[in-house]
Computed example of a mutant assay.
Amino acid sequence: MMNLVRLSTVCIALMAAPLVTAAGVEASANAGMEKVEVKRLDEVLAKPNIDWAKYTSVSITPLDMSTTTIKAPSGTHKRDIPELTEKIQAPFKDLYLKAFTREFSEDGLLAEAGSKKSGTLRIDSKILELAPTYIPDSTMNASGRNRAYTQTAGKIQMQFDIYDAATGEHLATVTDKREATKMWRENNSVQNRSQINQIMGTWARIFRTHLDDLGEK
Rank of each mutant, 00 (worst) to 15 (best):
I81Y: 02
K182H: 04
L171I: 03
N192A: 14
G114C: 08
P132A: 07
N188P: 02
I196M: 13
L41W: 08
K71H: 06
M65K: 04
A113I: 14
T69L: 01
T133F: 02
L121C: 00
S138L: 15
M200A: 15
V44D: 01
T209L: 07
I196D: 11
G119C: 02
R6K: 12
N188S: 05
W52N: 03
R193Y: 07
L128P: 01
A113R: 15
F160E: 05
G108T: 10
G114S: 09
Q89P: 06
S28H: 03
T101F: 08
A17C: 11
D42K: 09
L14H: 06
V38R: 10
E37S: 15
P62Y: 05
T61H: 14
G215I: 01
R208T: 00
I123A: 02
A46P: 05
Q157D: 13
D51A: 14
P132N: 05
V44A: 07
E216S: 06
R185H: 05
T68A: 07
S74R: 08
G201I: 03
V20W: 02
E129W: 02
T101K: 15
P91Q: 04
I88K: 14
G154K: 03
K71Q: 14
M183T: 10
K126C: 07
V174W: 10
K126D: 03
P62A: 11
A165L: 13
P73N: 12
F104E: 01
K78I: 05
G144C: 07
I123H: 01
T101Y: 02
T181V: 06
Q198P: 00
Q159W: 03
T101E: 10
E216N: 04
T150Q: 11
Y55L: 15
M140D: 15
L84E: 03
E112G: 12
S118K: 12
G108Y: 04
S66A: 12
S115M: 09
S59G: 14
Q159L: 13
E83N: 11
D124A: 12
M1T: 12
Y163F: 15
T175C: 09
M15V: 06
I60P: 13
A204E: 14
V38N: 02
S143V: 13
S8Q: 08
G201Y: 08
I12Q: 12
L214S: 04
V174Y: 06
D212K: 15
L14N: 01
S8V: 08
N30G: 10
N197W: 00
G215L: 00
P82L: 10
N192P: 08
S105Q: 15
E34P: 07
H170R: 10
G154C: 11
I123V: 15
R193K: 13
K87G: 11
N141T: 09
K39A: 15
T61R: 05
A22F: 06
Y149A: 10
L211R: 08
E106H: 05
M65N: 03
K126T: 01
Q191K: 13
A172V: 00
I135R: 11
N30A: 10
V5M: 11
T120P: 06
Y96G: 08
A22L: 11
A27T: 00
A142K: 09
W203T: 00
F104R: 01
V10C: 10
A13P: 07
V25Y: 00
M15N: 04
Y96Q: 08
E37W: 07
I162T: 14
A22K: 09
D51K: 12
A99W: 05
L121V: 08
